[in-house]
Write a protein that binds this DNA or RNA. Structure first.
Lengths: 209, 209
DNA sequence: CGTACTTTTGAATCGCATCAAATCTGGTGG
DNA sequence: CCACCAGATTTGATGCGATTCAAAAGTACG
């Protein structure tokens, strides 16, 4: 079995993912918990939008296949909403999939929209969420505009890490995809940066120097 | 003189930029019109956020300078809001500049936030705006993830144009920057695509075949 | 203990960036 | 109207860096 619906325990959900705490009571009653293994599709391009996804733990991604068959990562959500823009769409414009065992809350779109209308706090939180996503995407665009692998790596550590230190929450191979690089280029550049003393690599901990 | 404040004529403003029509009456009274020449800075990184910018006609951009001195285009607004995410920030994270003679409405942030709280229609329009921006940015990320110049060009025409036909509203040189390419690479690739019969180039009109 | 996947290294190739320079364009002022 | 200038467009040559293909070694997991 690839996924399962389990009973909801709000205090622990909120502890795992604070954003869940912003969901109004009325909407909570319509939420369903979804526990999925790795590589479980949540929706596919063209599917009608039925619910909003909140990643509680684990990771879910929006992906699209390029014409040459390579996979482009459009969003990587580790805790927080997935596919925020789908709230305004009829059907999905890309695929969504889990990359590891993941717990998700699903919220019916109609009830979600109603809750946004009625609850000023929830609404404000949602607007912040959208804004944060815009900033994140701009950073990603800026990064992809850099044309050397080393620059993209440094940029990622600076913008996603804290004080020049980043703990990597994914395989290097999939990080390479997120950086728009081949995994070989990433491995080689990491090594070179380390040997040049620009970067300190220690397992999943990366630090610029 | 680089810029001027002029009296407001709402009907014509709304005709030029429909988004202006969504602004509630109360907020309109606080709006100021700004007419700027090309290459006029609207704000700089670090400046405190005092107002929201709505581009009525012309073009304004968010830009940031990369460490190597090259200019990265974070947003290009031709009609519509600029720097939506600034509404939630204290100070700007990038520079804004006009690229041609441009008419802008400026709306004080405090009044803007208040209007969002009070007016459900305006609020809903603003959320749509944020969502649209997210989709646009995802498309841009997807495009920058493509590693051939031809693929980026095709992707741009498909996603920004209509039915495979695009009218370019900027110089090719600055389009190149938006595509994350050197202008030489863009010129050469356009020519090659045309000679290969993949693309039809006619002045500012580009069509995929 | 086998299988799938990631990590790592090597070698060859290709496309883009870069530097250079000529031409073309639109706009300004004499 | 013409000279002039700044910027855009175009072409050429060169080098680097990333992609690609290949293959080996390491690792996690059932």
């Amino acid at each position: 079995m690839q996924s399962a619906i389990e009973p909801l325990d709000w205090p622990s959900l909120i502890e795992a993912q604070p954003a869940a705490g912003l969901i109004p009571i009325g909407l909570r009653q319509q939420a369903k918990r979804l526990d999925a293994q790795a590589r479980v599709p949540l929706f596919r391009i063209g599917d009608p939008v039925r619910c909003v996804y909140l990643v509680v733990s684990g990771e879910a991604r929006l992906i699209r296949l390029a014409r040459n068959g390579s996979e482009v990562i459009l969003q990587r959500s580790r805790g927080g909403f997935l596919a925020e823009a789908s709230l305004e769409a009829r059907s999905y414009h890309c695929d969504a999939i889990t990359t590891e065992p993941t717990t998700i809350l699903t919220l019916p779109v109609a009830a979600f929209r109603a809750a946004l209308e009625e609850d000023p706090i929830f609404r404000s939180a949602w607007q912040s969420q959208l804004t944060k996503e815009i900033r994140k995407l701009r950073a990603q665009c800026e990064r992809l505009s850099l044309n050397s692998a080393a620059d993209r790596i440094s940029h990622y550590i600076e913008s996603e890490g804290a004080d020049g230190i980043l703990t990597l929450h994914q395989s290097r191979k999939s990080w390479a995809a997120e950086l728009g690089l081949s995994h070989e280029a990433l491995y080689r550049t990491l090594r070179r940066m380390q040997s040049e003393g620009v970067l300190d690599v220690d397992g999943v901990r990366l630090a610029t120097k």
